[in-house]
Write a protein that binds this DNA or RNA. Structure first.
Lengths: 295, 295
DNA sequence: TTCTTTGATAGACAAAGACTATTAATTCTA
DNA sequence: TAGAATTAATAGTCTTTGTCTATCAAAGAA
């Protein structure tokens, strides 16, 4: 029963019988049979069938919601019992927005000291992808913007405020200032994240409301790439204060506060709303609460 | 998997492999094998084994909690989907404390008008039994005292306040009064519920704090029995106002308010805390909210 | 049209689940 | 304390379910 619900979840993820089957480690006919069996049990078609996958029926969507919960709980149960016996262990899958990646170590480090047998997998994803992965039980926790775009069935722990800095060489335009305005920043060619990233959209908005445009000379979905360009001293970027601090800037690179307005975004930990949480997730939330004040 | 969790729930209820198996509609070896299989999956003993059932291990208790949730959700899913197709149908299992039995009709009647395909089973149980049945998924809703003894994972809808009346014949002692005190009531021989009922414990407490004792000449666990005695005019009882009203008293029987204090107990609907609820339960909660003001 | 993609179907085989019968270990009872 | 009764585990058999490979049919794409 639960296996079949997992089939359905995989199908929702992959939107393709063959790939969903592969993801579940079974063959395509097996997955087809599983879904069909579910449909018989429920007495309704769950999947819109043409000669290819065409999405779910309304009933299918509903079953999917239940499946997420039931499958999630059954995994949580296993982890819970395993934790009772061996202490916390297993793998914690986290996804973070690129601008928050640098501070993930601030959580994982004290976590590992407390629970050395837990392994981590950390993905760099956009804020929308993170919510999707959470929804589909593909990650255990996300680190993303909170309080902006509406968020579904998740619990939230605020971590820190993102303040923006113009990161540039001291001898570049504006490089000698103690603070700059968004209007001024809009005149400088920048390295920025790609527009599918919420950070970029936020910066675009700030630049625009200051009467400017974003004129990126270089876009990337990788903060490392942006950062390495900035370190040459020949490129400028707008980055959150935290990441600039964490990665460490040396002369002649400066991180100059951008005021008017001192725009603020809150970054937080989001985990599936489940009571009780899995033990590893609960420990992550505890750790987040613990370190949040120091960030 | 879910079937095996159901085995475990049955075992928790029956505390006996044979009876649990019977309750599940399988033979005892099948249930034993199922439990064993669960234990292998989890890698821990769940049941304390002697030559007979000796309760659960700590891990077993934990699995049991998860099992209640997972099994409950999987049933809710089926009902949910069935309701999508055929409208509300199925059976709603309710348990109520005896003193609330008379007002159950105030909910079931409008409920049936709205959802004619839902069938009811109503049990008369003590308040403690009701919580136990709810916990074990044996009923869908309870009607009981709220805000007294602590209640577990349930949602609550307050229904009405229980005020007490001395029910007695006009020519019996105190029968001519407009109101009486608990101290006075404690002097009269009464028909009361048995002491395992919370209503009786409440009345005992009230009598005691008025300096009296409860001196029941007749005890029963059946309100009908108490009521039929009172109707003869030769017996007196202490009953909630509501039940006296609902069942209808005729001359010369009177229901006299008991003051000092005008003790109040709140009665409410309790349902398992599950989001979303099963459709039939959600409808019951809606109905309860609707009628509560008129009670 | 012809080829490719995608999901359903058929048939064989293995695994899991369930039943009956029996056994082993306690506990009760006479 | 011996014998009976109770309770759960085990053995052996059979049925059901699940999974695989191979193949087919339908619908797009070239």
């Amino acid at each position: 029963m639960i296996d079949k619900l997992e089939f359905l979840l995989a199908l929702a993820r992959e939107k393709h019988f063959g790939r969903a089957a592969e993801a579940c480690g079974v063959t395509q006919p097996t997955l087809s049979a599983g879904v069909k069996h579910l449909e018989e049990q429920m007495g309704v078609l769950l999947v819109k069938r043409g000669s290819r996958f065409q999405g779910f029926t309304p009933e299918g969507e509903r079953v999917l919601e239940w499946a997420r919960r039931i499958v999630g709980d059954s995994r949580a149960m296993r982890e819970d019992i395993s934790a009772l016996r061996h202490g916390l262990s297993g793998r914690l899958r986290i996804a973070a927005i690129p601008t928050a990646l640098a501070m993930v170590a601030a959580i994982t480090t004290p976590y590992r000291d407390r629970h050395p047998n837990v392994q981590f997998t950390v993905y760099s994803r956009t804020s929308l992808e993170i919510l999707d992965l959470l929804e589909n039980l593909e990650i255990d926790a996300g680190i993303t913007y909170i309080g902006n775009e509406p968020i579904g069935r998740v619990s939230i722990v605020p971590l820190y405020q993102e303040h923006y800095r113009l990161v540039t060489s001291a001898d570049a335009p504006l490089g000698d200032r103690d603070s700059v305005t968004w209007a001024e920043v809009s005149q400088v060619p920048l390295c920025l994240l790609t527009p599918d990233m919420q950070n970029r959209r936020i910066i675009n908005r700030l630049l625009k409301s200051a009467g400017g445009e974003s004129r990126p000379t270089l876009e990337s979905d990788s903060m490392i790439l942006l950062f390495s360009h900035v370190r040459t001293g020949r490129w400028a970027s707008v980055m959150p204060e935290k990441i600039a601090q964490t990665l460490g800037l040396s002369e002649p690179i400066r991180a100059i506060p951008i005021l008017q307005p001192d725009a603020v975004q809150t970054i937080g930990l989001v985990v599936p709303q489940r009571e009780p949480m899995t033990p590893t997730t609960a420990a992550l939330v505890a750790e987040a609460r613990r370190i949040a004040p120091s960030l």
